[in-house]
C-alpha cells in the first residue's frame, strides 16, 4: 500500500516538475518573441518616419508642379469648371461655351435594386435661388434679400 502511494507521489512530483519546466521555457520564449516584436515595431516605426519624410520631400508642391507641367496636361481649374451638382451645369448651357460633365457624379445615381424605380435625390433638382436685389436694399441695414 505504502509502495503504491510512494510511487503515486513520485510520479506526481515528476509530472509537476516537468510541467513547471515546460511552462517556464514557454514563457521565456514568448517573452523573447514579444521583445523582438516590439523592437521590430519600433524599428518599423522609425523606418516609416524616414519614408514619410522622404514622401514629403518628394511631394513638395514646387516639384509636383514642375513634373505636372512636364508630363500632364493639367492646368489650374477655372471657376466655371466647378459646379455643385449636375443641374447647375444644365442651367449654364446658354453661354458661349457648352459645358459637358466629364462624368456623372457617383452619389447622384445610387445603385438601386432592380425592382425599385430610380429616384433622383431631391436636393439636386432644385435650382439655386435667384437673388433679387432691390434699389436701396441693404442701405438701411436690412438683411440682404435672397437669404
Amino acid at each position: 500500500m505504502i509502495r503504491v502511494v510512494a510511487v503515486f507521489f513520485i510520479m506526481m512530483v515528476m509530472i509537476s516538475v516537468g510541467t513547471v519546466y515546460s511552462l517556464k521555457e514557454t514563457t521565456q520564449r514568448l517573452q523573447a518573441r514579444k521583445q523582438q516584436l516590439s523592437a521590430n515595431i519600433l524599428k518599423d516605426r522609425a523606418a516609416i518616419k524616414v519614408l514619410r519624410a522622404e514622401m514629403a520631400y518628394l511631394s513638395q508642391p514646387a516639384r509636383l508642379q514642375k513634373l505636372s507641367r512636364r508630363f500632364l496636361a493639367l492646368s489650374p481649374a477655372r471657376p466655371d469648371q466647378l459646379a455643385k451638382s449636375v443641374s447647375m451645369i444644365a442651367s449654364r448651357d446658354s453661354g458661349p461655351e457648352k459645358f459637358k460633365p466629364a462624368s456623372a457624379p457617383v452619389d447622384a445615381f445610387p445603385l438601386l435594386l432592380p425592382r425599385e424605380r430610380p429616384v433622383m435625390p431631391k436636393r439636386d433638382i432644385t435650382r439655386p435661388p435667384v437673388r433679387k436685389i432691390g434699389y436701396y436694399d441693404g442701405i438701411s441695414g436690412k438683411p440682404e434679400s435672397g437669404k
Binding site: 520564449r29 523582438q36 523592437a39 515595431i41 519600433l42 522609425a46
Partner: peptide, 20 residues
C-alpha cells in the same frame, strides 16, 4: 534567429528627441 539575436528591450521610440 530567435535565439541568436539579442534585441534591446524597447518601449521608447528609436527616433524620439523631437516630435514631428
Amino acid at each position: 534567429s530567435d535565439q541568436v539575436t539579442r534585441v534591446p528591450s524597447g518601449k521608447v521610440d528609436i527616433i524620439r528627441e523631437r516630435v514631428d
